[in-house]
Design a protein around this nucleic acid. Structure first.
Lengths: 168, 168
DNA sequence: CGATCTATCGTTACAGTATAACATTATAAA
DNA sequence: TTTATAATGTTATACTGTAACGATAGATCG
């Protein structure tokens, strides 16, 4: 398994990637984190989080979530999903990918971090780098200009190892 | 003048910032670049570019451009402005700010670069860093993961020196 | 020059993304 | 229980972006 895939699919089970367990683990982590904070991971919010993870490490749009939610939640409308997303993002369980208007599960919700993503243009997989060297480089340049940072968007497009190999 | 302002307002005239000249210089640069390439900077495209620069180093949305364009161009509709933006971006004269759905004039359209922005949440000013150290850090991490990069979004939110000072 | 080809622009319609505002229900706290 | 607060339901609408096709204007070539 490539380092890219390892990074994208952090909660891997052994060598392959058992995505069913991966989703289950992500949901369990979310339960634990919310319980510890007294935040309410309601049925609806949990369902949205599950759909995000079931998208398989590829960012998914709000309206696609809405379509999938609709199957078991007839009253779902845009505010339904956007409010759930607001909560999940606030709790650090989900990241928004600005360049795609889409959402992806956070790989390490327990740790403080901004999101730094590598996004494959072919398969759609997004891997969270969260590399301190990149953070430091940015902080350094910002500091040199007297700029106080307060959040950032780091989204790198390109091709993951698997899709590079598969090219004609 | 702070380094941030110097960076944001690269074509500064002396110590202060003569924005009228700044806009004129940006338009002249664009004329030159397009002429050299045989690209057609039409009246419409030039007008949109001018409106972007007249926004004063703060990113401006497509529909706000449309409203301003409308005053002298009654037939303007969304495709009018989006097509002009497509051209300007393709020519490297304008950058899109993904996290704001907005557009800003490129500070150095002659040089090859991706856009790296510091964006003040208070005054809206966007400064282009284009720092090679940040590029290198990102390329390094991507390479370690076997990821071939092909474009990126680097947008740092925060407070510029002037707005930090002005805080209560 | 006139015919032709292509890029640009006009025009209509619509798709996709996101939020405001207020009513209702469920949960927690007193 | 009563009360307060958080969450959800509901309707409507705002904002952002594109598809598709026709009309026009500039370039190219005989």
């Amino acid at each position: 398994m490539s380092k890219f895939r390892e990074t994208a699919m952090k909660s891997l089970s052994g060598d392959g990637h058992d995505h069913v367990s991966c989703v289950a683990e992500a949901l369990q982590r979310a339960e634990d984190i919310c319980a510890a904070r007294g935040a309410r991971l309601t049925k609806l919010r949990r369902h949205v989080l599950q759909l995000i993870w079931e998208s398989g490490h590829a960012p998914i749009g709000a309206y696609e979530l809405l379509r999938r939610l609709d199957k078991e939640h007839a009253s779902a409308v845009p505010p339904t999903v956007y409010r759930a997303l607001d909560f999940l993002i606030e709790q650090g369980l989900v990241h928004r990918i600005e360049s795609l208007n889409a959402f992806v599960g956070c790989a390490s919700p327990q740790e403080e971090h901004v999101g730094q993503f590598l996004i494959c243009q072919s398969c759609g997989t997004a891997a969270e780098m969260n590399d301190a060297r990149i953070d430091r480089a940015i902080e350094k340049v910002a500091a040199e200009l007297g700029f106080a940072t307060n959040g950032r968007v780091i989204e790198v497009r390109g091709l993951c190892p698997a899709c590079r190999g598969a090219e004609a």
